[in-house]
Amino acid sequence: MQIYLPIAELPISVLMVLGLSGAVGFISGLFGVGGGFLLTPLLIFLDIPPAVAVATVAAQVAGSSMTGVLTYLRRKALDLKLGGVLVSGGIVGTVLGVLFFNTMRRLGQLELVITLSYVTLFSIIGGLMLYDALRAMLRVRAGKPARRKRRGGMHPWWMGLPMRMRFHRSGLYCSVVPIALLAVVIGFIGAVLGVGGGFILVPGLIYFFRIPPAVVVGTSLFQILVTMTGATVLHAVTNQSVDIVLATLLLLGGVIGAQFGGRAARNLNVESFRMLLALLILSVGMRFAIELFIPPSDPFSVVVPESAR
């Protein structure tokens, strides 16, 4: 069954979109990432104009993170205070990112910047996470605890910076400065790459601030919900590229998939959770690396600029 998308201006198979968004929604619920970094490239692969894909995925990510936020809120696995700090830092980063985005577009190198950032970012983050997960697994094999016990008073230096704040839900007493800085970086990357940034935020909060994964996922989803709600409205107002029909289809599949993903997350142990997320991120990085390093089958490409009405 095909349906014509009014903004993307092409027909698409309803079942395929539902299946695709269901699968991505499952992953999104499982890992607490928005899923935008998977969905956007997939939609572009299906011939949806890139601007429409980025803008519409923002709406879909907002909706599916709403489901997650409510679930984690009920389970009290969401730190609203930490979320508030992340959101305010994220806004600053988004503004900086949009400025950088427009500068690069003027210079005509936006596509290269995006591909290069995908490759480096995903390879580094995925690689680090995989290394860490493997090391923990080996330690378990050797009969030792998965990671060294944290002793009281043994905190990384950045947690002791000024403006310390207590985050009860996360069991964290830490300076606001590094958290806000992380949020600025994520907002920046999110605006440039058109992703929510959950895939950086989740490992960031786990590794740098040692916040329990259960709380990290809920809080990350909250930050994504706020950013993507704003992004959808901004995209709709500035470039009219949000396709409401496509967004509805993506959401129907996505929210259902996210429910099952969230349920599966409870039955998954922490180590395999890290390993799977690492492999997923690494494979997306590889996919972009192939595009960059392998000689293209057709060096030429045609760009039809977005219809100017």
Binding site: A59, Q60, G63, T232, V233, I244
Partner: peptide, 8 residues
């Protein structure tokens, strides 16, 4: 669009 998304 956002309201529809959040509602769903």
């Amino acid at each position: 669009t956002v309201l529809m998304a959040l509602f769903l």
